[in-house]
Nucleic acid binder design. Structure first.
Lengths: 352, 352
DNA sequence: CCTGGCACTCTACCCTGATGAGTGCCAAGG
DNA sequence: CCTTGGCACTCATCAGGGTAGAGTGCCAGG
C-alpha cells in the first residue's frame, strides 16, 4: 500500500538499486573498495554520505556487498554482481564498426581448427582475459568424401573430407591385407551410401546396414561396411577445446597470488573441469554467466565465466567464452562473447 | 714452482674447487645462501669456518659466488654454476631401471606429433621443470606416397604420407579444374619420380625437372610438376615446437614474482625467442647448457636451459630440452635430457 | 697457513604510534 | 519518517625503533 511495498516486491527500492549499480561500476573501473563519499559524488542521487551508509548497511545485510574490513569501502559480493548482471545492467550492443572489425578477423577461408583458434585469440585480445572455444562437434560435419590409402601391410589410412574445408585422417589396422583396387571399391561403396550424411548419421547407417542386410551382400560390401565401422567408431577427440590468452589473467590484482595463478593454470592444462563447465553451457541458449563460485569449480572462485553457444545449420555445435576476474566489465564482455559466437557460427556455416 | 703455481694453472686449487662444489650442491638442495659454518660441516675438509671465509672471499673476488647482503651466506653466480658444470660436476649416467621407465613412456607406435608431445611431457614430469621439443624437420621425412583428392571446383587436397606413420594434408587452389583421372595420373607420375626422397629432395627434384626438361614433357607431366611445386613449396610450420609443464616453473621461489612469471610465460606463447635459442643448439652435438644470461634472452636471466639434439637416420632432426631456474640439479637434469634425446631419436628411427 | 675471537653488518621480526579513510550510531531538523 | 551533520571508533598502512640471529671481515696468536 505504500512505496515500501513496491520496494519489497522488487526486493530493492530504486535508490538502493542505483547505488548498487554505481558501486559495481566504480569498483569494476577502479578496483578499490568504494566508500560512501565516492558514491555520494558519483551516483547522481544528491544524498549525503551518511544516508548512503545506511543503504550500504542494508545491502550488506542482504549479502550484496561486503567490506574487507571495518573501515574500507564496500565491494560487491558474487550475489551483488549477480543482481547487477540480472537486472541493473544495460548491455549496449556493440556498434557496427566494432562488429566489422571482429568479423574481419574471422576469415571463413581458414580450416576449422585455425578458425576456432582465431576466435579464441580474438576473445582474449578484445577482452584482455582468457578466451576459450569448445571445438565444433564433428558429428554434425557433412561427409563429402571418403578415401583409403594403403600404407603398409595391413595399415590403411582413411581420409574423411567434410564441409569442403575439413579433413580428418585415421590410421586403421586391418585384419588382413587388401589390394589397392579392393580399397578403391570399398571407398566407392561407402561414398555412394554415406555421402552427405553427417558423421553420426554415417555411423548409424553403417551399423544399420551391417545388421540388417548382412546376408544379401557380397564379401566386398561386407568388408567395406566393416571398414566403415572402424572409421566411424567413436573416437575421443583430445583437442576438444582451445584456450588462449591465459597470460592476461596475470595482470589482475585479485588473482595475482602465485598460488591462485598456479591452480588456474593447472585447470587450463588439465582441461577437464573447464570442459565439463563448457558442456553444461552447450544446451543453454544464449549467453551464460557464472560469477565466482556459481561455476561450482573451486579454482574459479575468484573468476567469472561468460559463455555463449554457437550454431551451424541451426544446430548448436560448440560453445565459446572468456574467463576473467569476477571484477570484469560485464556490460562490455557480454556483447563481445555474444557477437563472437554468432560470427564464428556464421563463418563456419558459410562453407557448408 | 710452488703449489700456488699449480693452482694458478687450473685457476683454482683443489680446496677452493671442493668448497665451490659443496656450496653449489648445498645451494641447489636447500635454496638458501650457504654460510661458512655449513660448508665447514658438509664439505668434508676439516677446516674451520674462518678459513672457509677466506676462501669464499677469494671466490667472490673471482666472481664465482656472491652474497645477497653482508651477513647472508654465499650463492653461486652464473659463472660459478658454469665452472661447476664444466669441471666439478660428475654426471652419473641414469641407472638402467630409470632408462627403462623413460623408454616405456615413449611409444614408437604413436604418430610423430604424439611422440614429440610424450617426450616433452616426460621431460617436464621427470625434471619438474618446463619441457620443450623442437619437432623433427619434415625435410628429412621420406616421402612414401602422394595422392590428390578433388574437393570442389579448383580445390584439391594433397595428401603426403611419410615414414609409414605420418600424414600431411595440404589444400591447393588450382588454376583450372582437373578431372578425377587427371589427378590420378599426376599422382602416379609424382609417385614414380619422388617416392623415397625426403621433402627437400623432392622439392629440388621438382624444380630441376621443371626447368630442365620442360620441352620434352606432355601437358599432363607438366601439370603434375606444377602441382608438385605447389605441394612442396616451403610452408612454414606453425607448430614447430612443443612446450609442456610450464606450470612447474611457478613452484620455484626465485621465479615466483608475478612479473617474472609473466614474461616467462609470454616467451612460451610467443615461441620466437625460444625457437631461435633451440635452433642454435641444433648444430651442436650433445648436451648444451645455458646458464642465466648465457642464453642471451633477457627473460631467461634467472633460468638455465639444458638441451640436446636428437637424430634420425644419423642426422640431427630436432632438439629437445628443459627450462628451469639456474638453481637446478644439473647432475641429474643433464643425463635425463641426454637420454631422452637418444630415446626420442630411437623411437622416431624405429619406424622409418 | 690455520684458527678462535671479536666487532660489525644486515635482515627479519615485532612493537609502537601517527595518519587517514571510512564506518556506525545518534540526535537534530525538515 | 527520512535525511543529515557530528562524533567516536575501527582498521590498514606506514615509518621508526629496538632486538635477535646469522654470517661476515679482520686480527692476533698458534
Amino acid at each position: 500500500m505504500k512505496t515500501s511495498h513496491t520496494s519489497n516486491s522488487q526486493l530493492l527500492n530504486d535508490r538502493a538499486r542505483r547505488l548498487l549499480r554505481a558501486l559495481v561500476e566504480s569498483y569494476v573501473r577502479e578496483g578499490q573498495p568504494v566508500g560512501s563519499r565516492t558514491l555520494a559524488r558519483t551516483a547522481g542521487l544528491d544524498l549525503s554520505p551518511a544516508s548512503i551508509r545506511n543503504v550500504m548497511s542494508d545491502l550488506e545485510e542482504m549479502g550484496l556487498v561486503s567490506s574487507p574490513h571495518t573501515s574500507a569501502g564496500r565491494v560487491p559480493t558474487a550475489q551483488g554482481y549477480r543482481l547487477f548482471v540480472d537486472s541493473l545492467l544495460e548491455v549496449k550492443p556493440l556498434d557496427s564498426h566494432e562488429v566489422r572489425i571482429l568479423k574481419e578477423r574471422l576469415n571463413p577461408e581458414l580450416d576449422t581448427k585455425s578458425l576456432v583458434e582465431s576466435a579464441s585469440d580474438l576473445l582474449s585480445a578484445v577482452t584482455q582475459m582468457a578466451g576459450m572455444v569448445r571445438v565444433p562437434r564433428r558429428d554434425h560435419a557433412a561427409l563429402m568424401q571418403i578415401e583409403f590409402l594403403k600404407l603398409s601391410g595391413r595399415q590403411v589410412l582413411a581420409i574423411l573430407v567434410m564441409n569442403k574445408n575439413e579433413v580428418q585422417n585415421r590410421i586403421l589396422q586391418l585384419d588382413r591385407e587388401y589390394s589397392h583396387s579392393e580399397l578403391q571399391q570399398m571407398a566407392n561403396y561407402l561414398n555412394e551410401h554415406l555421402a552427405g550424411l553427417d558423421l553420426r548419421q554415417a555411423r548409424e547407417q553403417v551399423l544399420r546396414e551391417m545388421k540388417a542386410v548382412r546376408e544379401h551382400m557380397n564379401t566386398m560390401m561386407l568388408a567395406a561396411i566393416e571398414l566403415g565401422e572402424q572409421v566411424f567408431s567413436d573416437q575421443e577427440q583430445d583437442d576438444q577445446v582451445v584456450f588462449t590468452g591465459q597470460i592476461h589473467l596475470m595482470d589482475y590484482a585479485e588473482l595475482s597470488s602465485v598460488d591462485k595463478l598456479r591452480s588456474l593454470f593447472e585447470a587450463f592444462t588439465e582441461k577437464r573441469d573447464l570442459l565439463t563447465l563448457l558442456d553444461t553451457c552447450i544446451s543453454a541458449q544464449g549467453v551464460q554467466i557464472f560469477i565466482g563460485q556459481e561455476s561450482g569449480h573451486k579454482v574459479l572462485d575468484d573468476c567469472s565465466v561468460v559463455t555463449a553457444p554457437y550454431n551451424v545449420g541451426g544446430q548448436v555445435v560448440g560453445v565459446l567464452g572468456v574467463i576473467g576476474p569476477t571484477r570484469m566489465a560485464y556490460e562490455r564482455i557480454i556483447p563481445v562473447v555474444d557477437i563472437t559466437a554468432k560470427l564464428l557460427g556464421a563463418a563456419l556455416n558459410s562453407r557448408n
